[in-house]
Design a protein around this nucleic acid. Structure first.
Lengths: 236, 236
DNA sequence: TGACAATTTAAACGATTGTTTAAAACAGGC
DNA sequence: GCCTGTTTTAAACAATCGTTTAAATTGTCA
């Protein structure tokens, strides 16, 4: 009988860590959580093995069962912690009292930072990308809590930037154009590595100039788009 | 001893199918190939099992070893066939004797068609996307044979569209902006499904209007971009 | 038909997976 | 010291993986 729906073994029943994070603690519970993230990110949920996680955490294999019920329970906890950690690290930029041009640039910069940050927590982005391609039941809540706020902010900023009033779907397309350009430097990173020689990549592919470029593209688009003619009837 | 490097079992040694494709044949070899693509696409290379492939092909499990050496050999063959099939189905648009604006639109339309086609061969795109996120040794050749031609065509088209002469890296960024916008409607499809209600999706998210929109954005960007000030020195 | 190679088959192999077990180690209160 | 509940451990479990084996089947040509 697989669980992960609360009922772990009888004894432990998920201790209540009043101190929210496990960042610094060094007990088995925290060690597993710290080790699991990078492994899940590197190998995917099903590719990751409990043994590798526990080996990396220097902990017995049975500990996962004891502390998290099963592998899926551990994964859920990792995703949960990831969400609160990132909401803290990449707060949506403060948009009030700002020219919409600046706001757009700030939003693009935030997006690119979330995508391309390669520091100690690159595994977080990797994990979210895996959820996008292989969505689990957790995915929808990730979109709502994590993507939607920035998406809405982007929509409102673009609404201020276009000269005439546009129907919703055209604004949405502009928003997706923005997000898509940012996302590509992560999704297509391996392709870019093949297409562009390393020397040029190191010069012109850091967050600063990329966000500058993308902002320029979108500002030009906003100034030029106009209400499109009604799309031809599509029948299917 | 794993093989897949040519030496299968002694006997068969990869029969030479003079008739290039296996589309219609019904022998074991072809049945496996037809069944393997969708399974690899749905589950990923390591997630796919030869048992599921063989079960779907109604063929004995040992047949994979006999005809393709091993699982990786089968995968290579699937990718190989996929490449020739798609090159035939989505030929790069003919660019000569055309206004660059039309060429851009045609390129965007081709890109989006490759991304969003959901007909009998949606698994092909899915498989390529998986290669982008989880590159195998095959990936580099895929980029060279499959992405590079369209990328170069895109670069030349954009060069004709910008008013002043731009350094290479700015043209590359414009090309990636184009590709990124197209790619997003595939990569972010699951996110879009959550963000945009279905009614609106069915109205405004078919290939025609999306390629119209993306082309408009990029044309506006081309008319407005100018040689950026030299980027600040970056030191690392 | 009979001989021989090509192909298909059922069964097994060894390795690895997530999970469970039952005993050992540890903790704190008396 | 002992007792009790919690945590950790080594070992085993059943399931599944890719692959191999050796026999059975099929096809082909003399």
């Amino acid at each position: 009988m697989a669980n992960s729906l609360g009922k772990t073994a009888n004894p432990p029943r998920m201790r209540d860590f009043g101190n929210s994070t496990h960042e610094e603690s060094n007990d088995t519970h925290s060690r597993i959580l710290r080790a699991a993230g990078p492994v899940f990110a590197a190998r995917g949920y099903s590719g990751a093995t409990v043994r590798e996680i526990c080996s990396s955490a220097e902990v017995n294999v049975a500990s996962v069962g004891y502390h998290f019920g099963d592998k899926l329970g551990l994964y859920r906890q990792v995703i949960h912690d990831l969400r609160v950690a990132r909401a803290k690290r990449f707060p949506a930029p403060n948009t009030d009292r700002q020219q919409p041009e600046e706001t757009l640039h700030a939003l693009v910069h935030t997006l690119l930072s979330r995508m391309l940050t390669v520091e100690e927590s690159a595994w977080e982005t990797e994990l979210l990308m895996r959820e996008m391609q292989n969505p689990t039941p957790i995915f929808e809540s990730i979109v709502e809590d994590f993507f939607r706020p920035l998406f809405d902010q982007l929509l409102e900023t673009l609404r201020l930037l276009v000269k005439e009033e546009l129907p919703d779907h055209q604004l949405q397309h502009l928003a997706f154009s923005t997000v898509g350009q940012c996302l590509y430097y992560r999704v297509g990173a391996e392709a870019i590595r093949v297409l562009i020689p390393e020397s040029e990549r190191q010069l012109h592919y850091e967050i600063g100039s990329l966000s500058q470029h993308i902002t320029t593209v979108m500002l030009a688009a906003c100034k030029n788009v106009s209400r499109l003619p009604a799309p031809r009837e599509n029948r299917d």
